Simulated scan of single mutants.
Amino acid sequence: MGKDQFSYQIFFERVFNPIALYHVEGDVRSVLSADRIFYVDVNPAYERVMRVRKRDIVGHNFLDVWPRSEACWPRIIVDCIRLGHTVHCEGESRDAGSYLEAIAFPLPRRRAAVIFMDKTDWKLSSDALKDKQEELRALAAQLTLSEENTRRAIAADIHDRIGYELVAQLKTLRRLMEDDLAPSVRREIERLAAAAERLISQSRSLIFELSPPVLKEVGLNPALEALAKSLLEPQGIEWSLRSRGTIGEFNADDAICIILYRMTRELMLNAIKHSGASRVTIIVNRGPGRIMVAVEDDGHGFDPAFSLEDAALARAAKGFGLFSIRERLQAIGGSVRIVSVPGEGATVAMSCPLKLREGEFK
Rank of each mutant, 00 (worst) to 15 (best):
G276M: 00
G248I: 04
S184Y: 13
L100H: 00
A153D: 08
I325G: 07
G97N: 06
L267T: 01
L260A: 01
L199Q: 12
E233Y: 00
K119P: 11
G345Y: 03
K273I: 09
V336I: 10
I19L: 00
I77Q: 09
D303L: 06
F323S: 05
R315I: 15
N270D: 09
A277L: 07
P342I: 12
D303M: 05
E134V: 06
S125R: 11
L173P: 02
D310A: 03
T347K: 03
L308F: 05
I247R: 07
K229A: 12
E225Y: 14
P106L: 05
R357W: 15
S184K: 12
A156E: 14
N285V: 04
M350A: 06
R198N: 15
F302H: 02
Q142A: 12
R51L: 14
E225S: 12
S126E: 14
R187E: 14
V15F: 15
I282E: 01
E209N: 03
R151W: 05
L83D: 15
S275P: 01
G359W: 13
R110M: 05
A102L: 05
L206P: 02
R326F: 02
T86Y: 00
V295M: 03
A45Y: 10
C352M: 07
G319Q: 04
L100A: 08
A182W: 09
A112P: 01
L145V: 04
M292P: 04
P353H: 12
K318W: 00
P18N: 03
I325N: 13
F11G: 03
I189S: 02
N221I: 10
L107R: 01
L220S: 09
G84V: 02
I247H: 09
A331E: 10
E197Y: 10
D157F: 06
I237P: 06
L83H: 11
L136W: 10
V28Y: 01
I103K: 11
M263W: 08
I283S: 00
I256W: 12
F208Q: 11
D310P: 04
E217K: 07
Y164E: 15
A141E: 06
R174W: 10
S184E: 15
L107T: 09
S125E: 14
V348S: 00
I162N: 00
N285L: 08
F105R: 05
W122D: 02
S126K: 09
D64V: 07
C352N: 08
I259V: 10
V58W: 11
G333D: 13
N285T: 10
V214S: 11
S125Q: 11
P353Y: 13
P74D: 15
I338A: 01
Y99N: 08
R290G: 01
D254T: 08
I282V: 08
V24P: 05
C80I: 07
K273F: 10
N17Y: 11
N285G: 07
P234K: 02
D64S: 12
L124Y: 10
A311W: 05
I258V: 11
I325K: 08
A195D: 14
D253R: 00
I272M: 15
E209V: 10
A102G: 05
P288D: 09
L329K: 04
V49G: 02
D95S: 10
G345I: 05
